[in-house]
Simulated assay, not measured.
Amino acid sequence: MELTTVWFALIAVLWAGYFLLEGFDFGVGMLLPVLARDNRERRLLINTIGPVWDGNEVWLLVAGGATFAAFPEWYATLFSGFYLPLLLILVALILRGVAFEYRGKRDDDTWRKRWDACIIGGSLVPAILWGVAFGNIVRGVRLDANHEYVGSFFDLLNPYALLGGLTTLTLFLLHGAVFLALKTGGEMRERAGRLAERLAPAAILIAGGFLAWTASTHHDVAGWLLFAAAALALAGAALATRARREGWAFLATGATLVIAVAGLFVTLFPDVMPSSIAAANSLTVDNAASTPYTLKVMTWVAVAFTPIVLAYQGWTYWVFRKRLTIERIPV
């Protein structure tokens, strides 16, 4: 297997890991005004992701860095053509990160509400725009013969991409609600479970529509099989949520996100950014890649350090595995 294909697959793994882990972070942030009734409950929800949210964002940094090093042409076209939505995502993530650190610095309700709004907005904006971005990548964008984006910002707001944004939004909300049902106890656990049960049908409808649309426009058998598996996993999440089997439900929502991302990348291959103007203008794993020597060095670095990073992050989740209850939150 060529190293260009290996690194395309590794970048897909990084994005799948990011959506799996940061997905429930975004879900928890968006659900603050829905599930929490007072400051203690908001602190309870934030504490469920407090030890891990910043580690989860590392997957995004590594995915971006790997794209820059392995496929610099893809990185350049993506970040220049999608400049405004990616800038909005970056600002939202910055405000969200600052809010986690600063909301408890003053004992003032107004102060905390302002930072809570940053957490909510900083979770909502990326949850939508990541879906819009990936929807456009899979659909294809206006690339000229020099592989430069020649469309406008409003070209990115097409129906297919907007449905992709709704898909990531609903899946992250469901993933976050299931995570909270798994991570909390008492009344909050029941409240989160009931909300997850109500969110599941909407997620099935919207995500199923997006995956069906994708499958109908890209005749790739492997992609179809992965989309079907993602749909089955999502249905399983709905059943597990109804039965209040939080662990199985969380595994199912996580599997839905991972398999769906895998399906999108399989459908995309060998392109990394198709052109909607002419197929010859598309960026592929070959014409967007770095030199073979660069890819070889990157591969050895990844082999050496990836197990260490995964082991450390797994250990972090193990240490903070216990359920949290409102009784543990000081008044």
Rank of each mutant, 00 (worst) to 15 (best):
D220P: 10
I204H: 14
A235M: 15
G81Q: 02
A260Q: 04
R114C: 12
W74H: 09
L239P: 11
K113P: 04
A127C: 02
V138M: 11
G17L: 10
L234N: 00
L157I: 08
I128T: 03
W115S: 02
A238N: 00
P274N: 08
G314C: 09
A243M: 10
N281K: 04
A237M: 10
S123N: 03
A228E: 06
D286N: 14
I137S: 01
D220S: 12
W300P: 09
P51N: 06
P330E: 08
A238Q: 01
A9L: 13
T306F: 06
V297N: 13
E22I: 09
G64Y: 13
S290G: 08
L232N: 00
M273L: 14
W224Y: 15
G140A: 06
A215S: 15
N47L: 08
K113G: 13
D108N: 09
L163P: 01
I94V: 14
Y83D: 05
N158K: 06
L84F: 12
F100I: 04
D109I: 14
G151Y: 05
F154H: 09
N136E: 03
L157R: 01
Y149S: 01
I46Y: 04
N146F: 15
A212W: 08
R245W: 14
L86P: 08
Y317P: 08
E73G: 13
G254E: 07
L173K: 03
I206W: 11
R242W: 14
L124A: 07
V138C: 04
E101R: 08
L234W: 01
R40G: 09
G121A: 04
L143W: 06
D54M: 15
A235E: 11
L162H: 07
D25N: 14
G223Y: 05
Y83L: 11
L87K: 01
P85A: 08
T110G: 12
R96E: 00
P72K: 08
Y75K: 06
L60D: 03
A215V: 14
I120N: 00
W248L: 15
R194V: 12
R245S: 08
G186S: 03
G55R: 04
